[in-house]
Design a protein around this nucleic acid. Structure first.
Length: 390
DNA sequence: TAGCCGTGGCT
DNA sequence: TAGCCAAGGCT
């Protein structure tokens, strides 16, 4: 495989050329030339101009988000953990409820893990909640309940990596450190024309992007700047269909959104079935749930509907689509009288109890679809199809 | 370092 | 319908 790559180098030159890669297709043997960037960058970007443009854009377009209305480092920390790999809209639904339940780092540290997981249920990546809980206990035990006020100490907390430490340090404490998340990476890669389908080249570009983000950082207002960069990526410089026509950096952008990227692994589809067992009791209608083992790699200790045979007579009560990582599950939910397989902890729970348990997302989705979980709106999405009423 | 860890809305 | 992928971190 022959590959030539011409990569702009910030330190050596004021001039950028269009990047191109020449290679041999491993299947066909044909020569392949990849051109990157609609427009050639002739000059090093005007950093002061870029800063001014983004500042003005952010002052105009900044969204009102719940965590932008506080200066409490604990609340900002919670928001940043929730926002890891999670959409803003999903976090908005949970952020204030979580803070009502655990308003201070002390209250979070004092809670049991199951309580924290129950409040986190549906947000996904449950290890975040466990690490946040552990970090809160560390902060209380070792720092008198005072949230670390700088990048170096923040990044030592479980669940707080470079991005999150930089975000908290800059937003809550005004420390001039660039917070480089997926949005900022994409914005900088496109701005500079650093795109590649090759994984190694991509990694090199990411390292350059971090340096560039640091160079761009508005040190007079790092918290606002970091949020502005992320906001641009989240609302304008979208992964697909970027809205270049409203971008403050349009004139300076090397690619205008034409951005080759490393391809992801394909998803696979798996059929699965769950049992819906209910009974009436003095306490009201109850449903059977089982607890996942503590040794499970995925969602240990969380509660879900019992498994059921995928091949059954009759129509399921409900069909649900639920993707977990690279697997697309097609789930049929059957009414049944049969007890779940022995060996796992099972329980009849009322609606009220279910809402306080750490339920898996799939189980929440099914219970919503069945009209349970009164605290939530009935599922209206297309991922659930009601076959017949219970 | 690459694989793993969840979920839901959009297209 | 089903793929895409998000304010990442850990091992």
């Amino acid at each position: 495989m022959l590959e030539l790559t011409v990569t702009p180098d910030l330190s050596d030159s004021e001039t950028y050329e269009r990047k191109s890669a020449v290679g041999i297709d491993s299947d066909t043997g044909d020569a392949v030339v990849t051109m990157v960037g609609k427009a050639e960058r002739k000059m090093k970007p005007d950093l002061a101009g870029l800063r001014r443009g983004l500042r003005e854009w952010f002052a105009r377009e900044r969204r009102e988000l719940p965590w932008r209305a506080t200066t409490d480092p604990y609340a900002i920390w919670i928001s940043e953990i929730m926002l890891q790999q999670t959409r803003v809209a999903a976090v908005i639904e949970r952020y204030e409820g979580f803070l009502r339940r655990f308003p201070t780092v002390e209250s979070l540290a004092a809670a049991g893990e199951a309580e924290v997981l129950a409040e986190w249920s549906g947000l996904g990546y449950y290890r975040r909640a466990r690490m946040l809980h552990g970090a809160a206990r560390m902060v209380c035990a070792e720092r008198g309940g005072r949230v670390p006020d700088g990048f170096a100490a923040l990044v030592e907390l479980p669940g707080v990596g470079r991005y999150t430490a930089a975000a908290i340090a800059s937003i809550a404490f005004g420390e001039p450190v660039a917070a480089v998340d997926g949005n900022v990476e994409r914005v900088v890669l496109r701005l500079m024309g650093w795109g590649s389908e090759d994984a190694a080249t991509h990694r090199a570009h990411l390292r350059q992007a971090v340096e560039m983000a640091d160079e761009l950082l508005d040190r007079a207002a790092p918290g606002d700047w970091n949020q502005a960069m992320m906001e641009l990526g989240a609302t304008v410089c979208l992964p697909r269909g970027p809205r270049c026509e409203v971008c403050p950096w349009l004139a300076d952008c090397a690619t205008r959104g034409e951005h080759p990227a490393v391809k992801r692994a394909a998803m696979r589809t798996v059929e699965m079935a769950r049992a819906w067992m209910t009974r009436g009791s003095r306490r009201g209608e109850e449903v059977m749930l089982v607890e996942r083992g503590a040794a499970e790699t995925v969602m240990p200790g969380m509660w879900e509907l019992p498994e059921a045979p995928t091949q059954q007579d009759g129509e399921p009560l409900l069909r649900v689509r639920h993707a977990i990582m690279q697997v697309n599950y097609r789930v049929a939910v059957y009414a049944t009288d049969r007890a779940p397989a022995s060996g796992c902890a099972s329980r009849w729970v009322t609606l009220d109890e279910a809402e306080r348990l750490p339920l898996t997302g799939l189980t929440r989705k099914v219970m919503r679809g069945m009209g349970w979980l009164a605290s939530e709106k009935p599922q209206a999405g297309r991922s659930v199809s009601r076959i017949q009423a219970q």
